[in-house]
Design a protein around this nucleic acid. Structure first.
Lengths: 216, 216
DNA sequence: CAAATATTCAATTGATTGCTTGAATAAACT
DNA sequence: AGTTTATTCAAGCAATCAATTGAATATTTG
């Protein structure tokens, strides 16, 4: 094999897979699926596209082996194929947060408009006994994996279930990751009801991935 | 700001940056620039495209902030903008090596055709006194950064400079990374001349990045 | 076996991306 | 100042990608 042919083949194959990452909707889908399996319809609804369109994007992700599909009952559940797929998405995400001003600006503006307060990091609070972790994602996502000692109250039920939360602790709300707004909404609601509350910057998967690093 | 508008803005901005990664030639350029600054002409020559075409790809990479440009004398030198950019490329690369069969197959076939021998990893050899690290990249790349205790003999000069290598040690050749063939060529030449030689799987940057992880 | 339902396919149209060519720019050297 | 040289720009054409629509498929459930 010619050296040039070899390199072209390799880099083209990688670029082919990389193309799966280069569409806003597909990134959103990956971010969503990182938190647990979902049906095509759920994905379409939550990312605000048509079912046919979501299906097409899922085909592309499946062809690139970033997600896999599993039939259960009448539906097909799509899920992230591997942790490495999340690692790659996280690397791209962190890079963009770092050097794409548009991303920073949009995040800042959102937090300003919604009067969000500064978040905190897992390292700072995870052995603080005066802090209570609160997972505000849907229950299925909590079931698929969550931080140790976290309480599960989905954001939609939070206003009715405030009583379950300890009054004497700071509530640390977390959700799907840096672009998810559930935790911000939770903090706003909690503060309005007299709780001390903060948003955790990391998601469950970010922590999970980090812990894996120490294992190796 | 509407939640939907916010998410669309964020994911679109990230996808915009990600598009810079989704072309074979641009990946090859990133891989090249990770080893040190180069002029447009050098990049064009080494990646086998026209100068105008290389320039266009570089504009795209620059716009995405993955590379930056610096004028020196009559030429413009392009270089990787940050270590994070390499981290992201490495994450994509590793993911593809892991789950894109075409990449694996091509690498395997190349090694078979060129009778390449199995490589070794930095962990296994870096404090082995019976091993001699050999950097076969061009001198400028060696100057831009190299592994401790490595000798620098560019692949083009290797056949004339064999005498500089210790006969009693195993020569561990390394180059630009997993898709670079210099180290394979070096090992073939060394073995043909009676040396014990192995290819190092990692590049200088891979090790460098790994060491940074422990620092944090 | 038939009906219901979730998902995928196929075809179309418009938008974006990629490469080539030849000209334009801009800095550096004489 | 004029010339050289490296790089970029602009225009054009081909190829690829994206969203929509409506139909087709396949599996479950009755």
């Amino acid at each position: 094999m010619e050296k040039r042919i070899y390199k072209d083949a390799i880099y083209s194959a990688i670029a082919g897979m990389t193309k799966a990452f280069s569409h806003a909707n597909r990134l959103e889908i990956l971010d969503l699926l990182a938190n647990g399996e979902k049906t095509v319809e759920q994905i379409a609804t939550q990312t605000a596209v048509s079912v046919a369109n979501a299906s097409q994007h899922l085909q592309i992700l499946k062809y690139a082996r970033l997600v896999n599909a599993r039939r259960q009952g009448t539906s097909i559940y799509y899920g992230l194929s591997s942790k490495k797929a999340y690692t790659a998405w996280k690397a791209l995400r962190d890079l963009a947060i770092d050097l794409e001003p548009e991303v920073q600006r949009t995040m800042d503006q959102y937090r300003l408009e919604t009067n969000s307060y500064p978040g905190c990091h897992f390292d700072e609070i995870h052995q603080d006994t005066a802090a209570q972790l609160l997972d505000v994602r849907p229950v299925e996502e909590f079931a698929a994996g969550h931080l140790n000692n976290a309480l599960s109250i989905p954001i939609l039920e939070l206003s009715e279930r405030l009583a379950e939360l300890p009054r004497n602790k700071t509530i640390i709300a977390y959700c799907r990751g840096p672009f998810c707004t559930y935790a911000d909404e939770a903090v706003a609601l909690l503060k309005a009801n007299g709780y001390k509350a903060l948003r955790l910057e990391e998601s469950y998967l970010d922590i999970n991935l980090q812990e894996d690093q120490w294992k190796n």
